[in-house]
């Protein structure tokens, strides 16, 4: 953890901060996750509850729910993904700018949950890569917040610079 933190001692360094680029980038990223609430079914209500007064997701810098995929970083898939909807979920995911993360909220989004039927996709991970799964039907808002904190940890450990240079060289080549 130490290596990732910003080490700063005013007496020694003056106004200069020395740190790893990864640490700064990740620090910025993880404290301003803008979720794209993919509210599909019942779990969306708990998603709303976690944005509302008692649970207040803005404590984590995540209250900026953006319904436009272009403006968001993290897709929270809250609800049952049916086969008819799957295509739309994937398209929206494709429209999100990198870097992007996906949280599968609830049993349905993770595995199909209690809906073992002809119309329901058995887990959203069939079409998009999922970073964090949240169990529960529906998960309580606390569980979602916990998942978001786990996601923050995950973001904190990414090698962002490497990913940046890799995608930059991929574009130039």
């Amino acid at each position: 953890m130490i290596a990732n933190e910003v080490a700063y001692n005013g007496k020694v360094e003056g106004d200069v901060i020395v740190t790893k680029a990864d640490a700064v980038i990740n620090w910025i990223r993880k404290h301003s996750v803008w979720p794209m609430p993919m509210g599909l079914a019942c779990c969306a209500i708990e998603l709303m509850a976690s944005a509302a007064s008692r649970y207040d997701i803005s404590r984590f810098g995540m209250e900026v729910m953006r319904f436009s995929p272009r403006q968001s970083d993290c897709m929270i898939v809250a609800g049952t993904v049916t086969y008819k909807m799957a295509e739309v979920v994937r398209r929206i995911y494709d429209q999100m700018g990198d870097p992007k993360w996906v949280v599968a909220m609830g049993a349905c989004a993770s595995t199909g949950g209690m809906y073992r039927s002809y119309a329901v996709m058995q887990g959203v991970d069939n079409i998009v890569p999922v970073d964090v799964y949240v169990s529960g039907c529906p998960p309580r808002p606390e569980a979602l917040l916990d998942a978001m904190m786990k996601l923050q940890d995950k973001i904190g450990k990414e090698s962002s610079v490497k990913a940046l240079t890799k995608s930059a060289s991929a574009v130039s080549s």
Binding site: Y83, E87, R90, R91, Y118, A119, M121, Q122, N126, I127
Partner: peptide, 23 residues
Amino acid sequence: AGIDTPLPAPDVVEVTDASVEPA
């Protein structure tokens, strides 16, 4: 459980290789 069927969107199938599978 349903019956195997292709998904309605061919371009999504291309990237994800998903299809309607029996549950």
